[in-house]
Design a protein around this nucleic acid. Structure first.
Length: 592
RNA sequence: GCCCUUGUAGCUCAGCAGGAUAGAGCAACCGCUUCCUAAGCGGUAGGCCAGAGGUUCGAAUCCUCUCAAGGGCGCCA
């Protein structure tokens, strides 16, 4: 099913073709109007076309309107200003569209006819340390992109490309050998309560104790030669560290498959030799490098991707090359998405160019790097704890939930409503959990990915404005209408007629029909904030619809037909919010 | 030095496939609760879209330059 917007687009495209077959592929430039007095949608195509056709724009607009066949959809089409074509939707058509959405599990989001196999790489922390605030955006954003892709009917692998290899593991291994020798006997029992402290202790030893440092370096060599003892300890550590990560992913409701960097170890020599053979790689200053056109360093010399170091070792360029090849050739990835901070933009640009040049990423493979800005503290510097340490993700989540709970408890004390006062401790905890996480996630997702944003508990936990808690509240409020009226939203009679007469009803309806367009845009632009903005307009639209003064009554509607119709609108709004929030990785609550 | 990102209301941020008077939230001010969740709704005020040129019928949006902030630029990831 095509969205209303797409139908209008198509009608315009047909009209243009009728005017002149050569205009077949002209974008009709259909946009939402900026003001209701201009109708609902507008086409800006006439102005641009006027020049080409050597006519005046309003004349062209008239020509388009004459050729346009939209009587079923539109009440009227007007020409305004320099040549805008304003489209006024027909309420009956709107009603019909809404009824269609209501019976569609995907709320109008078309299931793709050409499912692409997507592979998305996100979160990907280094296993040596505890996850911290730096992993927040990639983890949250990656999950959203993955969910949207799935929702459209594509297949997807969510890859956690964890840093489980490298020199710092020598240091950790040495520390384990010295302090936890029992690991060798019983690797499964290895348990670290605090990974961060563990890492710091090992690092301290490494920095201050030469003997330790020497032994640590030896452990790196042992690891690289796959010494069984070293491997046992390494595996125990990796497993334990991943357990820590997945505790966080569980809290965040994020799912990921761990494929660490070490997975590619055996593939690295092959990658290097392949690139040498096809003359992409050459030796330079003792290292094996890939030089790509257009990339230069400080001195203006060509900037290499180093794929084999002077000492024969490999680095992240090599691993990423091996991974991109593997994902395309072995996993069948047709679109690869990497979600990392924006500082790595150049690295990924080069990686993609190299993958194309090597012939791995063929033309039909789409490569995307989604770069995001930093999370800042109120001082506009990278977000830190009060004493300047990194903020652990675990602590961040706990604090969010605790603050949410404090807020709810406070409201409960102030509330006159029995409903809130009667909440059990368990219910409060559930709500706090949902609200706290929604606040953190929504705040992150509602910002433009490319910009840095300032982290603020007060802002993200605010009940008013474009926040997670407000969205959850809006949802809970709608659901309560159903409870109050003894109506099951999910089982409203299918034949319930939709009546759209009141301005508040029409306004809400026009917002609801846009859901699929927004989802399509999110996946095209890879910008979650397009969805948060939309959902906010949905809840604003609902609040106005439901307003005592300017909106309409639902349960106390003037007639049964109106009541049922409005309940249907409520139900559809709730579904839209729930679906949208689900895509954002946010779980709704039925009451709050 | 080269490259990338950012610069929009007092604050936090949208908008940037060019399109009508630049939007929202917070903060400020003014209204609205015998009634379905007021954790709400409506309104007022607040802007030389960093600056200067250019392209265009039309520019916050595209191009060039300048300024400011941040980042990247050979063996870390």
């Amino acid at each position: 099913m095509n969205s209303l917007l797409e139908q209008i687009k198509q009608a315009f495209a047909e009209a243009l073709t009728k005017i002149d077959p050569s205009l077949k592929d002209t974008d009709p430039m259909i946009r939402l109007t900026t003001d209701r007095k201009f109708g609902d949608y507008q086409s800006n195509v006439a102005m641009g076309l006027a020049k080409k056709l050597k006519k005046n724009p309003r004349e062209v607009a008239q020509q388009v309107i004459d050729a346009l066949d939209v009587a079923d959809m539109c009440e009227k089409t007007d020409i305004a200003g320099p040549g805008f074509i304003n489209v006024f939707l027909r309420p009956s058509y709107l009603a019909q569209t809404l009824a269609g959405l209501n019976t569609d599990d995907h709320l109008g989001v078309a299931q793709t006819q050409q499912p692409l196999h997507h592979i998305i790489d996100f979160s990907s922390p280094n296993l040596a340390k505890e996850m911290h605030v730096g992993h927040l955006r990639t983890t949250i954003t990656g999950e959203v992109i993955a969910r949207v892709i799935e929702f459209m009917g594509h297949t997807i692998e969510r890859v956690n490309h964890v840093g489980d290899w490298g020199t710092q593991f020598g240091m950790l291994l040495q520390y384990i050998f010295e302090n936890h020798p029992e690991v060798l006997e019983n690797p499964d029992a290895f348990h670290v309560k605090d990974l961060e402290t563990f890492y710091k202790k090992a690092k301290k030893n490494f920095d201050e104790n030469d003997v330790f440092a020497t032994e640590a370096r030896k452990k790196v060599v042992l690891l690289q030669s796959e010494d069984p003892t070293a491997m046992t300890v390494w595996k125990a550590f990796v497993k334990e560290s991943l357990r820590h990560c997945h505790e966080i992913y569980d809290l965040l409701d994020v799912s990921l498959t761990d494929i660490g960097e070490s997975f590619y170890n055996t593939k690295l020599p092959g990658v290097v030799s392949e690139l040498k053979e096809n003359n992409m790689a050459c030796e330079d200053k003792g290292a094996v490098c890939v030089f790509l056109d257009g990339f230069t360093n400080r001195e203006g010399d060509p900037l290499p991707m180093i794929i084999q170091k002077t000492d024969g070792g490999y680095n992240y360029d090599t691993t990423d090359l091996a991974a991109i090849k593997y994902r395309i050739q072995d996993c069948g990835g047709k679109r690869l998405i990497y979600v990392t901070d924006i500082r790595q933009a150049q690295h990924f640009t080069m990686l993609f160019v190299a993958a194309r040049k090597a012939g791995w990423a063929t033309q039909d493979v789409i490569l995307d790097h989604v770069g995001y800005g930093m999370v800042l503290g109120s001082d506009r510097k990278p977000f830190k704890t009060r004493d300047g340490g990194t903020v652990r993700l675990r602590d961040l989540i706990e604090e969010g939930v605790a603050r949410a709970k404090a807020m709810i408890t406070e409201n409960r004390e102030g509330a006159q409503l029995e409903r809130v006062q009667s909440f059990s401790e368990e219910k409060i905890n559930n709500i706090a959990n949902a609200v706290g996480l929604a606040a953190i996630k929504y705040s992150d997702l509602s910002h433009n990915l490319a910009s840095d944003y300032v982290f603020s508990w007060d802002k993200m936990l605010a009940m008013d404005g474009n926040t997670g808690p407000y969205m959850l509240y809006a949802y809970a409020r709608i659901r309560s209408i159903g409870r109050k009226g003894g109506v099951d939203f999910d089982h409203l009679p299918k034949e319930t007629p939709m009546i759209l007469e009141h301005p508040a009803e029409l306004a809400l309806a026009k917002i609801l029909v846009r859901f699929s367009d927004v989802v399509a845009n999110v996946i095209k632009e890879l910008k979650p904030n397009l969805l948060t903005d939309y959902l906010y307009s949905v809840s604003k639209g609902f609040s106005s619809f439901y307003d005592k003064k300017l909106g309409v009554s639902v349960l106390d509607a003037e007639s049964d037909d109106l009541k049922m119709s409005r309940l249907l609108l409520c139900s559809l709004t709730a579904k839209t919010l729930k679906a949208g929030l689900y895509l954002l990785g946010i779980t709704v609550v039925e009451e709050m």
